[in-house]
Simulated assay, not measured.
Amino acid sequence: MKHNIGAGNPMRAQFEPKAPYTAQHFAWSFADGVGTVTLNRPERKNPLTFQSYAELRDFFNALRFATDVKCVVVTGAGGNFCSGGDVHEIIGPLTGMSMPELLEFTRMTGDLVKAMRACPQPILGAIDGICAGAGAMMALACDMRYGTAAAKTAFLFTRVGLAGADMGACALLPRLIGQGRASELLFTGRSMTAQEGLAWGFFNDLYEPADLLAQVQETARALASGPTFAHGMTKTMLSQEWAMTIDQAIEAEAQAQAICMQTQDFRRAYEAFAARQKPVFQGD
């Protein structure tokens, strides 16, 4: 995948689906079916800019066509995940924009979350240190999150005079940790501690900082070696069934599972079981 940003509006970026991919505004590595996105402005605690928002949005959109990428890890450099939108490069310029320009920006930020939710690969967040604002929303958009005892997650939009309703926070956060807890965090902007995040279901597990990335990548490799077509179906159904009745969800899952039963991975699993061997899935 090749990324090109023209000389025009930095919020408008376009991908060409070519490999290998060289990121301009974050670091990207790929091995064993697992891609790792590293937000890498550690001197500023990895804030986002107009350009990095746009590139990340287009990157996750393009992952729908990257069949070699089976699982994705998102992390930050230098002991922090992401401090949110850059104060000087985003928040300052926003104060001088017109309403159409502001709406283009807020839609772009939301499109990043939608792109992360829509790409078929499981996304695992490896979260250390500061995880705030838009960074907290990127973490929330992951399918699973792993942290450290030092992780501090804050949806601090109210602290800059904005609503807690940002990038889908009022929809996603209550579903993950409950309405009351989400309301507290979104109204107050306070930091959720790592232990709270673990107890409330925001984090799947906590690791030592030195072990975090390796542990999460190991989990990602295990997922990448599994039936990845079926993983994509699971992710799709987890999202779509929010808006379904129970009867609709059961019927949708019947159809989804029948589709998965047509895959070669399903046949491989049966044949391996019959031969008392471990199946080797190939994602088809």
Rank of each mutant, 00 (worst) to 15 (best):
A132P: 02
E55S: 10
A139K: 01
G92N: 12
T219R: 15
F229K: 10
V34R: 01
A19E: 07
H231C: 12
Q264M: 10
D58S: 15
A194F: 03
G84L: 04
A151K: 01
V73H: 03
Q217M: 08
G133C: 15
Q277Y: 02
F155M: 08
Y207I: 07
A275G: 13
A77F: 01
A134F: 12
E253S: 09
R221Y: 03
A118C: 10
V216S: 03
E55F: 12
G283S: 02
N46S: 11
F59R: 01
C119L: 06
A136Y: 01
Y146S: 04
C82E: 15
R44K: 11
M99R: 15
M97N: 06
G197D: 03
A19W: 06
L103R: 15
L102C: 13
G164P: 07
K278D: 09
A151W: 05
I250P: 01
R107F: 09
G35K: 00
G147M: 10
N9M: 10
P122W: 09
L186M: 03
C71A: 11
F30M: 11
A141R: 01
A134N: 11
F266K: 13
P93V: 14
F26W: 04
R159L: 13
D211E: 13
F60S: 05
D32E: 14
G6Q: 07
G85W: 03
L173G: 03
E218H: 13
F187D: 15
F81C: 12
T95F: 04
L124N: 00
P17G: 15
N40P: 06
A254T: 04
E55W: 05
G283T: 12
L103C: 12
K18C: 13
P227R: 06
C131H: 08
K2M: 09
M108S: 08
T263Y: 00
Q217W: 00
T193V: 11
R267Y: 05
Q277D: 07
N4R: 10
L63Q: 01
I177Q: 00
G135A: 12
G178R: 08
A230I: 06
G197M: 14
E55M: 04
L102N: 14
P209S: 15
A243P: 08
M261P: 03
L212T: 07
W28R: 13
N61R: 11
Q195N: 14
Y207H: 14
R64S: 11
L39S: 08
I123P: 02
A115M: 07
A141L: 10
A163C: 06
F155C: 12
R175L: 10
C170Y: 11
L185G: 00
N61K: 08
G197S: 09
I90G: 00
S191C: 11
I5A: 04
D247S: 15
G96A: 08
V160S: 12
M237F: 04
I246M: 09
Q240T: 09
E89Y: 08
A136D: 04
Y146L: 11
A149Y: 08
A54I: 09
Q215N: 14
L112D: 03
S225F: 03
L173E: 00
M108A: 15
A220K: 00
F155Y: 08
A139N: 04
P93M: 06
P120F: 06
K114R: 10
L39N: 06
D86A: 04
G35C: 09
D166T: 08
T38Y: 11
S29Q: 14
I123H: 03
G79P: 06
N4I: 15
G168H: 02
I250N: 07
L39E: 01
M192A: 14
G135S: 09
G125P: 03
E104D: 15
R175F: 02
